[in-house]
Amino acid sequence: MPFYRDTLGLPDSAFALLRDLIHERTGLYYDNGKNELLTDKLSPLVVDRGFNSFLDYYYLLRYDSGAEEEWKRVLNALSVQETYFWREIDQVHAVVDILVPQYFSQNPLTPLRIWSSACATGEEPLTLAMALSESGWFDRGPIQIYGSDASTAAIEKAKRGVYRERAFRNLVPRLRSKYFSERERHWEIQMELHRRINWRVANLAKEDDVSMLATNTQIIFCRNLFIYFSEDSILKTLKMFYRMMSSPGYLFVGASESLLRLKTDFEFQELGAAFVYVKR
């Protein structure tokens, strides 16, 4: 009798192999208590492939010549796409009210690059764009905003620019009405604002992907991603950011993701009501 997903066991040995491979390729880390979570997320992919064991799937990811395509599906399955507009807004205010004016006072003509490196379905870079638009900065200086995520599915959704009610729980109605059009059961971003974001797929575990976006970038947002990373992956990513971004450069991480216990070259700084890690 062929299996159904409930019979797809993930024995400890196979879990450890898959977990370590996923960690190596994506930075995401599933500790021993997350066996069931990983099973839930990956079993549709395993079944869809016609496999009846996770070990077969591990070998596919590790050895198959077409594994790159499958890795995209894995990243789509594993990525946490839950986010919303105007999240942890103090850091956005710090950018708009302190860093941007500071930057353009010294570099009036050089584009300011901001990279939202784990943007999921796009709420974070669009929040930055809204805040900059409200302050009139798009008319006062060249600003480039990049939004990337490892999940192709998430970036596809970001490119579509369509959002449900849940995404607006922190956004005041005035701004929603200003920047979005209401459709049946969802809201669509205004094209002019949407076009300000360059959308990319980028895996922070891959140096080439990071290099493409971090080089010549002054401000990086990497929020609520490190909670899913191991310490090694965090350090590796931070080293790449530090090496590649501009100087001075500013890195914003999630409110619950202090880097102080890690040995990094970034310096902690308070900016208004927010904190930031600075490359001098």
């Binding site: 159904y4 997903r5 409930d6 079993s43 549709p44 992919l45 079944v47 869809d48």
Partner: peptide
């Protein structure tokens, strides 16, 4: 269209 949905539904029907 999503395989994961079809799998869940098949399991339920079974």
């Amino acid at each position: 269209p999503e395989a994961s949905v079809r799998q869940a539904v098949i399991a339920a029907i079974n």
